[in-house]
Simulated scan of single mutants.
Amino acid sequence: MNELSILERRFPGRRAGLKREILEQALACFNETGIEATTIDSIRARCEASVGAIYHHFGNKEGILGALFFTVLDDQHEFFEHYLDKARSLEAFVSALVISYVDWVVQNPEWARFQFQARASVAKGPHRHALAERNARQLKGLKEKLGAVDTSGVKISAPFELLPSLIIGASENYCRAWLSGRVQTSPSDFREQLAAAAWRSLQG
């Protein structure tokens, strides 16, 4: 699964070709020069769209940023769901969360880089309410899925809101280090160890 396949899945068909091209080049600009330094003109210079076409599809730079960020969240969520649907025990559920997170990052490194650097800007920008609502829905969905797995014999004392951080925190930290080049070994090589560590953290 490469980066462009995400855009093809989220914006399918020939009529969406220009939109995909704008988003593809915007993703490259954001990753190469940063969120703040990227402008509509720098995006236009990399694609065959006019400034008018860019504004028509996305309104402004924040519109492009939001479209890319929500595309990441949608794709990532769908990827996670595929793993979580197979989990029948709490331990398998925790393992599925960690392994799906690692696998998605490794398969989509440019999207992951963008997600890490864009998160704060989106959370503070005009899409902050939409992001908060989406996060709340996904947290609710995660809680419902967690309630459907077998938790017999396992006691978790941590509040539910803390669980995603306990489960994903170490994996996210290592993935950030890998994406920045601070470590060279792929997160895939450690995904079982990261999953085991997450499981131990829930057991106190």
Score class of each variant (00 low, 15 high):
Val51Ile: 12
Trp199Lys: 00
Val154Ile: 14
Leu194Tyr: 02
Leu166Asn: 15
Ile40Trp: 11
Phe70Thr: 10
Arg88Pro: 09
Pro164Gly: 09
Lys155Gly: 01
Ile64Ala: 10
Arg191Lys: 15
Leu139Phe: 14
Leu7Cys: 09
Ser50Met: 08
Gly125Lys: 01
Gly66Phe: 03
Trp199Pro: 04
Gly153Val: 00
Val122Gln: 04
Thr39Cys: 07
Gln184Ala: 15
Gln115Val: 11
Ser157Thr: 14
Gln138Val: 14
His56Lys: 05
Lys143Tyr: 12
Ser157Asp: 13
Lys155Ala: 03
Ala96Arg: 06
Gly34Gln: 01
His82Met: 14
Val72Tyr: 09
Arg14Phe: 07
Ala123Asp: 03
Leu139Arg: 15
Glu78Asn: 12
Gln107Thr: 13
Val106Glu: 04
Arg10Met: 11
Gln184Gly: 15
Ala26Val: 06
Asp189Leu: 11
Arg134Met: 14
Pro109Tyr: 01
Val94Asn: 06
His127Pro: 03
Leu23His: 02
Leu7Lys: 03
Asn2Leu: 10
Gly204Phe: 06
Glu110Phe: 04
Tyr83Thr: 09
Ala96His: 06
Ala112Leu: 03
Arg119Met: 08
Gly204Tyr: 04
Asp41Met: 14
Trp111Ala: 07
Pro187Lys: 10
Arg10Cys: 13
Phe11Thr: 07
His57Phe: 05
Val122Leu: 05
Glu62Ala: 08
Val102Glu: 02
Leu4Trp: 12
Glu62Trp: 00
Cys175Ile: 06
Leu84Ser: 06
Tyr101Ala: 10
Leu23Val: 01
Ile6Gln: 00
Pro109Glu: 01
Gly63Leu: 04
Val94Cys: 07
Ala120Cys: 00
Phe93Glu: 02
Ile54Lys: 05
Arg15Thr: 09
Thr71Asn: 06
Lys145Ile: 07
Arg134Ser: 11
Phe30Arg: 00
Val105Thr: 10
Leu4Lys: 12
Lys143Ile: 15
Ser157Asn: 12
Ala118Gly: 03
Leu139Ser: 15
Arg14Val: 12
Leu139Ile: 15
Val51Asn: 09
Asn135His: 13
Glu62Cys: 03
Arg182Phe: 13
